[in-house]
Amino acid sequence: MELNFENITKSYKNKQVLKGISLTMGTGVYGLLGPNGAGKTTMIRIMADVLRPEKGSVTYNGNDIYAAGDEYRANIGYLPQDVSFYDDFTGRDYLEYSAALKGMEKKRAKERIGELARSVGLSDDLNKKCTAYSGGMQRRLGIAQALLDDPKILILDEPTSGLDPYERIKFRNIISAYAKDRLVLLSTHIVSDVEQIAAQIMMMEHGIIQHVKTCEEYIRMMEGRVWLVNMPAEQLVDYQNRAVISNVRAKDGCMVVRVIEDAKPDGGAVQAVPTLEDAYLYLFNYLPEKNGR
């Protein structure tokens, strides 16, 4: 399986939101990380065929997805960023309606709805109105909807927003198990959502995919760039304005500050073990600031 973006651009009015996205995705989990406004949702909408690019083409196994039309969309499961519902639909209605939209057979739809309701923990709530669901429940219902027809391509736009920590963990497990032989694209601005499950992580900013690497590669990239510095609390305020700080901890009346910096900072800094979050800060905060300085 191969999904290919070829120089995709998209503008709203005169603001270019996607500036030439080219990339190839195969099977596995892809994380799409980037700050708000980076263009993640726009890219995902193009992939889900609800938005058309201005230039460039998206192909699935070599075929243009807009030419393939119904045939391409039959492979998609899509969780939009804003899940919405009809006023008088219950959770079950919503899933049955989605099944009808996907052209699923009645019997199979019924089985899948039962299965998925169990795995997202909504079995007891299926007969309640969707509009009475909490944010997290709505999101989980949306996830069930996206998984309904066993799609070859699963596209999730900020799937974890509104989920509590336990629900997030459950979600990650569902996705990990699901991703075999399939393509899962998951957008988020929360690093921990993807660091454990994504085979490839794409860092997106200002409508450009800046990097596509594995989590390990990002961490390796950060070696020698993350430091722990001890300093008195009074100095911290001033220091914060000059450096990108990923964490501050109080220890023995002193502050242990985790700093992102290309060169070793003054004052007895020691190297720390980098994480993906450090890479995120490095790429989206440290580098832009440094270039601006």
Binding site: R45, A48, D49, V50, G69, D70, R73, A74, I76, Y78, P80, D82, S84, S98, A100, L101, K102, G103, Q145
Partner: peptide
């Protein structure tokens, strides 16, 4: 969003 991205949505 949901309708247009589905097989029978168009």
């Amino acid at each position: 969003n949901l309708i247009l991205s589905s097989r029978n949505g168009r």
